[in-house]
Every structure is written in C-alpha cells, then in structure tokens.
Amino acid sequence: MSSVSISDLVAVRARHPEAIAEAAAVRVRRPLVGESGRLMIVAADHPARGALGVGDRKLAMAHRGQLLERLVLALSRPGVDGVLATADILEDLLLLGALENKIVMGSMNRGGLAGAAFELDDRFTGYRAQDIERLRFDAGKALLRIDYDDPGSLATLHSTARAVDEMAARRLPVFVEPFISRRDADGTVRNDLGPEAIARSIAIASGLGGTSAYTWLKIPVAGNPDEMEWVCETSTLPVVLLGGETNGDQEGAYEKWRTALRMPTVRGLVVGRSLLYPADGDVAAAVDTAVGLL
C-alpha cells in the first residue's frame, strides 16, 4: 500500500478548503453500470456512525491514514467500480485523486449512532440530495432499520421516503439498505437476518416514495440458496449484496456471495470491512477475489 500523507491533506484543508469543490468539479465520471452490468463498490461509511471495530480490533478503522491507504489500494484494483463513504472520507479521496472514473456514493443518514439510545431514530445527518448533485457524485445510500416496537423507526421511515423522492427528482440513484431490527434485553440493536424478515424489509423499502425508478436495494445474503432465491423475488428493484462481518470465515462469505450473485435481480456487491481489513492483511487479494465473483 502506498503511504498517504496526513500532513499534506491537513495543509490543503487548512489553507485551501476550496480545493475539495474544485476537485469535484473536474472529476472524470462514468455511468453507474458499465458494460458488465455489475457493480463492485467498497464501503467505508462505518466510522461516522461510531462503528470503528473490525472483528476483535475495536479501533481498527480509527486510524484515518491507514484507512485511506487501504481504500486507495482497493480502488486501484481492476474491476472495482467505486466507493461508498461519508463526506470527510470522500473528500480525502478526492484530494488524493482516487475517485477518477469511479462511482462515488454518498452516505446519507448517519445519525443513528452505534449503541445510542436514539440509534433507531436514524436522522439524515450526512449527505443530502442537493449535496450529491452539487458535487457531481453518482448515488446516495440510506440505512433503514425498522423496529416495530420503537417509534424512532417511523421517523427514519418517513425521512427515507423523502430522500427517495429528492434523489429521484434529480435522477440520482439511491441505495436503500433495509432491515427488520429489534433490541435485546440489554438494549443492543440486532438485525433479523432470517429470510422472512429480509423479504418483509424488501417489500417495505421498495414502496417508499413517489417513485421507485431510481431506487436500488442493498441487502444481506439470506439463509440457503433456495431461501435467497425466493427472497429476491420480493421485488423487481435491482439489488446489491452487502458484505457485513465474516466472523473469520472469509471463504464461506465468498461462497454465499457467489451463489447469490446468480439471482436475476442481484447486480453486484457493496463490501467494506471484510475487504479493507481481511484476516491475512492482504487487501489486494481480498478485493481481487471479490471482483472475481462477479
């Protein structure tokens, strides 16, 4: 991995903050979906939610220089289409010149901080539709966790619907990541990864807003291949698979992704920590393997 100079980035931010908008204005863009019809997006929007851990390393993503080095390397690999992140990270990547001819996806709601009492009242504290349009970025992403016992979920549901409308009005794609969630006895939010819950979340997310023309879904792999097949039949919206934690079983995760990518609605992968922080430390090999699945 090539080294990233934090001091250089800080100097530009301090002396010439306009450089960010200038870099965005001249960035070379590309269509959302290329000739392959597939998408391989690297995700790095976890830190803004206070989620810095990878496996048993609680602060793995806290070192910004190392995170940027891993992102620059991942984006340089053949077949990687783009990145999903919050403003601070995307702006660093802009200044580093790493976003040329890449899909840039802005993370929109980051207010539901990990472990907070208000976690499910997930406010849109990140990118707005007008920000994504102004910066000439390519898409947005919204997390939609629905807990039937938490009134905060209704606020998130409503604000996500309005974000779908605002993005569609600008003809910008928005990737909605829905879950049916619940709190454990200790207050920890858990996402239900069973096929029935995923199918229900897909049905809810697909109906948000005044049009679904620009809506994509970002969903986990459900159960076995037969279950995943009928889960994907819940909607005709294009789907990307989220990576999530592999719990040390990287090969098992690859096999699940490989099988799910055969489903007709599945168009690609959005994977973060398991590629940026693989157990063996080889980011390039992990990214190349994931690209190979497409």
Rank of each mutant, 00 (worst) to 15 (best):
G140M: 01
R171V: 09
A129K: 01
A203C: 04
L75Y: 01
F179H: 15
L73E: 15
R170H: 11
G53H: 14
G82V: 06
L154P: 08
G53A: 15
G82W: 03
R190G: 04
S159T: 11
A117K: 05
R267F: 01
G65N: 00
R128N: 07
S235V: 01
D150Q: 08
A60L: 10
V240M: 11
K256L: 10
I202M: 15
G82I: 11
D45Q: 03
D288P: 02
V221Y: 01
T215E: 02
D249V: 07
S7V: 11
P151H: 04
A168K: 05
M108R: 02
G126T: 06
L73W: 03
M61K: 15
P173C: 12
T156V: 00
L154A: 13
I132M: 07
S206W: 00
L52A: 08
K256E: 07
H16E: 00
D249L: 08
T160R: 00
S274A: 15
L241H: 01
A87E: 14
G37P: 06
G268V: 06
G152I: 07
A253T: 14
L32F: 10
A129M: 06
V72S: 13
Y277R: 09
H46T: 07
L143P: 03
G37R: 01
A21G: 14
A142C: 15
Y148S: 12
L208C: 05
L172K: 03
I20E: 04
D184Q: 14
D8F: 02
R123L: 14
S5I: 00
D81R: 09
F118L: 14
M108I: 09
S201K: 01
R162P: 03
L93M: 03
